[in-house]
């Protein structure tokens, strides 16, 4: 097992190298250039240097005066020492900016993902247990509604009903007006209250796919020979489902769990925007639009690391739930 993990980590390092190289190259080739925008703005000032001069000066200042490869290695040299530099657009060290926005997105992602699992797995199993029954059709219809609802539309409806008509929640933002005067516990509850609508939006929109997935898997497992064997042994239906079938349904779900690790950190761009949550989804979107190469590089590589890590965790979990793939 140790050997397996070590091998996978070494492969991951090689992969990361190429992934970051590709991202850097793409970022350098983007038509949006932070430097050009800055230079244009500065050149329009009265008595300023010409645009060409500003571009040359800024390029040198931001380290864009070298070719893609040299620029990449310069970035890499800093990155391996975990020194990602300062963000151009946000005007502060990248890690600081990242820390200030990531937790909103992370908790938003974590809570909605947990809710999604807690709702989708039992419902999917219930639907599969009684295929073509009323339960099954209801779950299927709800799942399809969830899959087809665009998040901006659903979020708007939620806001209309719960914020405008009922007045239960604020329309947007993460804190209420009196936030500064509250005690710590109240502050926490205040933020939590503001997260309710975004969490509902994300959960409802993403729950459908999961439910269908669990249902399809459970159906496949329930039709397999070993389930018939379990029934032929005289086991109760409950034990057949919860013990024999569930362990087998778990196998594909576990792979999904590992794959969703980067999802927890990548934020929900549209939902964050709609509820004015300063999360990573919103921040990274602005960074890309502004051509903030250091921030985008950091964030993309961070997601790449998480993806590779997620795959590794999925493989390890896979071996834990499926004895057939245990590695020596």
């Amino acid at each position: 097992m140790k050997k397996f993990i070590l091998k996978r980590i070494l492969i991951s390092v090689v992969l990361l190298f190429f992934v970051s190289l590709i991202i850097y190259t793409i970022m350098r080739c983007l038509p949006t250039s932070y430097v050009e925008n800055q230079a244009r703005a500065l050149a329009t000032r009265p008595g300023a240097k010409s645009y060409q001069e500003w571009v040359a000066q800024l390029n040198a200042a931001y380290g864009l005066d070298v070719g893609v490869l040299r620029g990449y290695f310069r970035w890499l040299a800093g990155a391996v020492r975990l020194d990602f530099g300062d963000s151009w657009y946000w005007n502060q060290p990248i890690l600081d900016k990242f820390k200030s926005v990531i937790w909103y997105s992370f908790f938003l992602g974590l809570v909605s993902f947990t809710l999604e699992m807690l709702i989708a797995i039992p419902l999917g199993i219930a639907a599969a247990k009684k295929q073509y029954s009323m339960t099954d059709y209801t779950v299927t219809v709800v799942a399809l509604i969830g899959i087809s609802l665009p998040s901006f539309f659903f979020a708007t409806i939620l806001k209309y009903i719960f914020s405008i008509k009922l007045g239960w929640f604020d329309l947007s933002g993460t804190v209420s007006r009196m936030h500064q005067t509250m005690t710590d516990a109240q502050k926490f509850l205040d933020i939590a209250k503001h997260m309710i609508l975004p969490v509902i939006t994300i959960t409802v929109v993403s729950i459908g796919g999961m439910m269908r997935y669990v249902r399809a898997n459970m159906l496949e497992v329930l039709n397999s020979d070993y389930i018939r064997t379990a029934r032929a042994k005289g086991l109760s239906e409950k034990r057949v489902i919860n013990h024999h079938a569930f362990r087998n349904t778990l196998i594909p779900i576990v792979t999904l769990l590992g794959g969703s690790l980067p999802g927890l950190f990548s934020g929900a761009m549209i939902t964050e925007q709609l509820f004015q949550i300063p999360g990573i989804g919103y921040t990274s979107y602005v960074s890309v639009m502004q051509g903030d190469i250091p921030f985008v590089m950091f964030y993309m590589v961070f997601l790449a690391v998480l993806t590779l890590l997620g795959n590794l965790i999925a493989d390890i979990l896979y071996a834990a739930v499926d004895p057939r793939v245990r590695v020596g």
Binding site: S224, D225, Y226, R228, T229, A230, A232, H244, R247, N248, I251, V321, D322, P323, R324
Partner: peptide
Amino acid sequence: FQEPMTSLNPVF
């Protein structure tokens, strides 16, 4: 059963 290959639960 007919199919010994699939009649035993693979995870136990």
